[in-house]
């Protein structure tokens, strides 16, 4: 069973994703696949908050900022994986060697391949993404490409997942499949 969860900032995506992953795991092994690579104090504070939020839930953390499909070889494949977030993964894949000046144009394609491997190979997977598509700004080419790429990944995951949920101020909108609160 695979679930895609998206929504605006601070809408409750991670909390719902943890709840969903716990439910899917049903007492079995569960892994939190953390894709954000912290670069500064603000990032580290965000990571600490997420770690505290999931304390006691029995998640083992796998820090995979790139090539997220490696989670399948690091853990039992019948486990449940919570991938948080697709958004951070794409950003990291755009700069595969940490020092690249030019963004890799094929990053989204690699993300789709890796994430679909997780969706197909894992016992269960929950993916968290961000809804960044509805503001009245003309972005620069770089940002616009990032938005288009993230949307491509989102649509691919939405097509592959059994359940697709949108969060709005903590409320769940069911776009595909079923969700019982």
């Amino acid at each position: 069973m695979n679930i895609l969860i998206s929504g605006g900032s601070k809408s409750g995506k991670s909390a719902l994703a943890q709840q969903a992953a716990l439910r899917l795991a049903g007492g079995g092994k569960r892994y939190y696949v953390a894709t954000m690579i912290p670069y500064d104090g603000e990032d580290r504070a965000r990571v600490a908050r997420h770690v505290a939020d999931r304390a006691g839930m029995g998640f083992e953390t796998l820090e995979l900022g790139r090539k997220v499909e490696r989670c399948l070889s690091l853990a039992a494949t019948d486990a449940t994986f919570l991938v948080d977030s697709v958004t951070a993964l794409l950003l990291n894949e755009m700069y595969p060697d940490d020092h690249g000046a030019e963004a890799d144009p094929d990053a989204a394609k690699r993300c789709v391949e890796g994430l679909l491997k997780v969706a197909r190979g894992a016992g269960n997977a929950v993916f968290v993404s961000d809804r960044i598509y509805s503001d009245a700004i003309r972005y620069d080419c770089f940002t616009e490409k990032y938005r288009a790429d993230l949307a491509l990944i989102d649509r691919s995951l939405a097509s592959a997942c059994d359940t697709v949920l949108e969060l709005c101020a903590g409320n769940v909108i069911v776009h595909k499949g079923e969700w019982k609160p």
Binding site: G8, R131, Y133, S134, D135, A136, I137, R138
Partner: peptide
């Protein structure tokens, strides 16, 4: 039509008017 209604109120007057007109 694209939904452009959900960002922060744009700083530029034209973008604000655009968002409202849309």
């Amino acid at each position: 039509c694209m939904d452009i209604s959900c960002g922060v109120v744009p700083l530029g007057a034209e973008n604000r008017a655009w968002r409202e007109a849309t």
